[in-house]
Design a protein around this nucleic acid. Structure first.
Lengths: 348, 348
DNA sequence: TTGTAGGCGTTATCAG
DNA sequence: CTGATAACGCCTACAA
């Protein structure tokens, strides 16, 4: 088992100095053709590659991006990662992942771990718990140490950094307007509790759409799900709550749900209650997932372009890393990704 | 913007030597209580944390695991990553990801990039293209440099390394035997081309189950899908091929598919042709995905325990990294994860 | 009890 | 054209 070869070993073998080897390998004009040939041939033979860690230390630059997300087993987030990875690799960076698992403390620990020299900058979507606690000290500390952060999707307006978000408000508004245009008179909303920034915005979009069409929103048509419970419990409760919603409001003919699972569950419950989709009930969900495409009937969705978000976030971060304009007064960008409606069979 | 503080800076501020600071922070008995107090207080104030990169260089150990997978937007792989991350974090390691995107050259490039000092070891599931080309030099080179590799799911028997696999053969066999026990007389198989190791094993399981029950396998009931085409094309072709299968073999009353999408597509086509599930046709898929659970009817599946695979792979790798028994004759383990059948409505 | 020196692998600068 | 030296940040054996 031969360890990776180093400059020092090459130097010793060829009886030249380390710096000569280094220069020869970088094709420096300082070095004679002869020596270059010899060194390069030897290096090739032993498959020499500079040690990244040593380079990172020397250059104070790791060429690595840290991405912190709440959950990886989730279509949206894995697509974002794919986007980040794509751009990062193209631009010579690696990607290291940290999962917060929706926990504040894991988010903090993970960030601290990576911030100690392992990476050059962060791409982050914050955990639900962090959103609830509204404790953002770890972001501010990281940035004050000169490490840039790009937030995506779940962002915090108080934090001054670059951001990539989807146009949640208009996405939701368009969806609901679509339902109205399709003839729905009584549209229910299935959303999350308000501390989730995106849930809040989508709720707002729903309300604005109604207002545009002079429809009075009704509190009993808005179902706010508590998604802090564990997954299974949450799902069971979900079904019951939706069933309750339908039973108490027989006239519902449209559903807008802030995510895929809520929309599918609504369809499932509706079918159970004998409603036909899209004849009796039309449904639209907000998502970038796979379920919608393969459900029966196919679910019409507001597409979030997750991969594109990842790409934009990565570009934003790397641009910042490579410019490093030492302006005291930094200005930050917020990129808004427009959504679009993917129509399937759950709407007319 | 204050950069991260270093030992050197603390030393200068406190007018002591760097090594005194270093020792004081590690609570060495060599240092006087007084000095320790002073140094530790100062370090805490400035939130000193040792630089990971410097530590990595010094210790020749990065405490980082590299994971190379063909695709991240895939339930199976993201679950594996979650398992790896979970164990890695618990044991003090970070995880860095590389996506091969099913391409041989991307796999090689990604591995080389990470092998140059960035990580201590690899967890890998090889790309389809690599399986086709059967070119494994990059694995052998990596290992010959003393960097351990753990392969999972898509493994290569020629390569001497630790492995974590699911019991594809028995998983498939059990599934098919279940169909037989449920009364199916004519069971079709929807699988991939043989170069995909797992597809091959699952096919074998299918055949063994039939044999056990003295059922003569029929070539016309085995559909081998070419999955090297691009995704959309592949899907369209899939539907046509399955429709053809049903039409040419009206007596089919059971389907075993080597993945989720094939199974769902089969159900979809069957429904289109007026078959009722599970009355006329029973279906089982091999998968760890989400679609099965939310499809209607729910798809019975052979569960792969992806997260567990990730956990075992990470433990295996870290054990190896931390033992480093310098035995010339290394012995390698292959951990086999047993599958189990998750019964839903697509079987009786 | 504290400090010095050397080394992890690399590159840049400067001297020979 | 080649080599010695310092530095990136940290740790540790050894010297004072």
């Amino acid at each position: 088992m031969k360890r990776k070869i180093t400059l020092k070993q090459i130097a010793r073998e060829l009886e030249v100095s380390i710096s000569t080897v280094s220069k020869a390998l970088r094709n420096s004009p300082e070095i004679s053709e002869d020596t270059k040939q010899k060194v390069q041939a030897f290096a090739k033979l032993y498959n020499y590659r500079p040690n990244n860690i040593a380079l990172s230390l020397k250059n104070r630059k790791t060429n690595t991006i840290g991405i912190i997300i709440p959950e990886i087993v989730h279509h949206f987030f894995s697509k974002v990662i794919r986007g980040v990875e794509l751009v990062a690799n193209k631009r010579g960076y690696n990607v290291i992942i940290g999962l917060s698992n929706e926990s504040f403390s894991k988010e903090v620990i993970n960030m601290e771990m990576l911030a100690n020299g392992s990476i050059d900058g962060f791409i982050i979507s914050i955990s639900k718990e962090t959103q609830q606690l509204q404790d953002y000290h770890h972001f501010n500390e990281t940035m004050s140490q000169g490490m840039p952060i790009v937030m995506f999707d779940r962002v915090v307006s108080d934090i001054k950094c670059d951001k990539v978000i989807v146009d949640d408000l208009n996405g939701a508004k368009n969806a609901v307007e679509k339902l109205i245009a399709n003839g729905c008179k009584s549209i229910a909303l299935i959303t999350t509790k308000d501390y989730v920034s995106v849930g809040k915005l989508r709720t707002q979009g729903y309300l604005e759409a109604l207002e545009n069409y002079k429809i009075q929103p009704k509190a009993e048509l808005i179902l706010k799900i508590d998604d802090t419970l564990d997954y299974e419990t949450h799902l069971e409760a979900l079904e019951d709550e939706i069933e309750q919603l339908f039973k108490s409001n027989r006239h519902i003919d449209g559903i807008f749900a802030v995510n895929e699972l809520y929309a599918l569950t609504a369809m499932k419950v509706a079918r159970k209650l004998g409603l036909e989709i899209p004849k009796d009930l039309q449904v639209i969900g907000f998502t970038d997932g796979v379920l919608s495409k393969h459900s029966t009937p196919g679910l019409t969705t507001v597409s979030q372009h997750a991969q594109q978000m990842g790409e934009r976030a990565a570009d934003l971060l790397i641009d910042k890393l490579e410019n490093k304009i030492e302006t005291e007064e930094e200005e930050f960008q917020t990129i808004v990704i427009e959504t679009n409606l993917v129509e399937r069979e759950s709407t007319k």
